[in-house]
């Protein structure tokens, strides 16, 4: 039973990670690539880590206490990942726009119209 849950988590995680990496190749410019890579790899990594956390908590119940520590440390790593990943994406997008890489095929670009934002 619990094995099936872990398999499902891992499969979903691998699927979304693959999707994000594939979108990295397929999309035409920086911003859409950031869409694919940030959202999909964060979501996929959440699910693969959830698989590990479920494994740890289940074996904590069954086998020994060290598996619980595994689950908790994996949870802290996941938390740090979820906090830092969108921030990095935001920094890259801002840097790309300021360094003069504008979105391709854009219908509207309010930021370019507004001009340079001073800090």
């Amino acid at each position: 039973m619990i094995d099936t849950v872990i398999y499902i988590f891992l499969a979903v995680g691998v699927f979304f990670n693959g999707l994000g990496s594939f979108g990295l190749i397929r999309f035409p410019d920086v911003y859409t690539r950031l869409h694919a890579s940030t959202k999909c790899t964060t979501f996929g990594s959440i699910f693969t880590s959830l698989g590990v956390i479920t494994y740890g908590f289940y074996h904590w119940h069954v086998d020994s206490a060290s598996y619980g520590v595994l689950a908790i440390h994996a949870f802290i790593a996941l938390l740090a990942l979820v906090i830092t990943n969108p921030t990095g994406a935001h920094a890259i997008a801002r840097a790309a726009h300021r360094s003069g890489v504008y979105p391709k095929r854009a219908v509207v670009d309010k930021l370019k119209e507004k001009g340079d934002l001073s800090d």
Partner: peptide, 23 residues
């Protein structure tokens, strides 16, 4: 977030985008 990923999946597979920067 789950909805977002299904949306991105659709766009990765079909390649149908209409981007822009709004405020």
């Amino acid at each position: 977030m789950a909805k977002a990923n299904i949306d991105v999946a659709y766009r990765v597979i079909t390649g149908r985008i209409n981007p822009g920067i709004v405020k």
